[in-house]
Amino acid sequence: MLGLETIIPESTIWFLVKILFLVGLLVYLVFAAVVVRQVHLMTSTLQVGVELPVKSIAWIHMFVAIGVFLLALLTL
């Protein structure tokens, strides 16, 4: 690690780590979107009267993922 710092500045290393975090969170955002899509498919396959809460949970999950992504973008 010490050797690496002489080649690459510390700020660049943390910038690369930030990029890794953001890429990971972006992949998770795609997954969250897939969850919303699949919940829609699931509720259209079977209706038992709890479609609204289930869809709400999927959307809230997606908004939380977006929030964490934005937080990482701004704070890291």
Binding site: F21, L71, L76
Partner: peptide, 9 residues
């Protein structure tokens, strides 16, 4: 701040 985001993730 990285630890915090890591825990959130």
């Amino acid at each position: 701040r990285f630890q915090f985001i890591a825990v959130l993730f």
